[in-house]
Design a protein around this nucleic acid. Structure first.
Length: 199
DNA sequence: GAGAAGATCTCCT
DNA sequence: GGAGATCTTCTCA
C-alpha cells in the first residue's frame, strides 16, 4: 500500500505554464528529522527564459540561475531582498530554463512547528507568500538543486482524493518587466493565497 | 570594485 | 497604503 504517490520527473519536464497550473492541489512535503510538514499548493507562477524579461534566466545562465537550466524536478531556491528565500520547481527539458515559483500553500500537517518557525499564531498568515512558506517549512539555500523526485527532505505528492477546485489566472506579483503576462495561477476563494483581486 | 535592483515582509500611520 | 530593512547577485567600468 502506497502511503503517497510521488510526482515523477515527467510531471516537471513539460511546458512551464502547464506545470504551474497543474501543480495546484499537489502536496508540498518537508521532512525534518522524521517530522512531516505538509501544505497544499494553492498559488504558483511560471518563469521562463528568453521570452520572459521577469525571469532570472532572461539574460542567459549565471552562477545563481544555473539550476533553472538543469534537469526538471529539481528545487531552485534563491535568496532575495536580504531576508527571504523563494522556492521554485525546475521545469522543461534539460538545457531549457524554466521554473515555477511556489507562492502559497495551505498548511495541512505540522502546523504547530510551522508556527514556531514563523513566530506567528494565525494559520492564515503562516504560508501565504513565497518568503513566508520557505521560512515556515525551513527551506533555505541548502535545498538549491535538490532533486524533488527522490521523496526525501523535500518533495511533492499527488493527494488520493483531491477536492474539486476552481483555478484562476492573473498577472504575476512583484515584477516590473513582463508584468503583462498572465502567468500566475491560484485556487479561487482559497483563504491562503498571497493576494486577492489581482487581475 | 562600485552601484543598483530585487519573483518580499513587517511595521507604522 | 507606504516605506524601511537587509544582503546577495548582477552589470558595467
Amino acid at each position: 500500500m502506497a502511503m503517497f504517490s510521488l510526482l515523477p520527473v515527467e510531471f516537471y519536464s513539460r511546458n512551464t505554464l502547464v506545470v504551474a497550473r497543474e501543480v495546484l492541489g499537489k502536496v508540498l512535503v518537508r521532512e525534518i528529522q522524521g517530522a512531516l510538514l505538509k501544505g497544499v499548493i494553492v498559488e504558483a507562477e511560471a518563469y521562463r527564459e528568453a521570452d520572459d524579461p521577469a525571469s532570472h534566466a532572461y539574460r542567459g545562465p549565471t552562477n545563481r540561475n544555473r539550476v533553472m537550466f538543469g534537469r526538471a524536478g529539481a528545487a531552485y531556491v534563491y535568496f532575495t531582498y536580504g531576508n527571504h528565500y523563494c522556492l521554485n520547481f525546475v521545469t522543461e527539458r534539460e538545457g531549457v530554463a524554466g521554473a515555477v515559483l511556489i507562492r502559497a500553500v495551505e498548511p495541512t500537517e505540522g502546523v504547530e512547528l510551522m508556527m514556531v518557525n514563523r513566530q506567528v499564531a494565525d494559520v492564515r498568515n503562516l504560508t501565504n507568500g513565497p518568503g513566508k512558506l520557505t521560512k515556515a517549512l525551513s527551506i533555505n539555500r541548502e535545498h538549491n538543486g535538490l532533486d524533488l523526485t527522490l521523496g526525501k527532505d523535500l518533495f511533492v505528492t499527488q493527494p488520493d482524493n483531491p477536492p474539486p477546485m476552481e483555478i484562476g489566472r492573473s498577472r504575476r506579483i512583484g515584477v516590473k518587466d513582463g508584468a503583462d503576462k498572465p502567468w500566475r495561477f491560484y485556487v479561487v476563494n482559497n483563504p491562503f493565497i498571497s493576494k486577492k483581486g489581482v487581475k
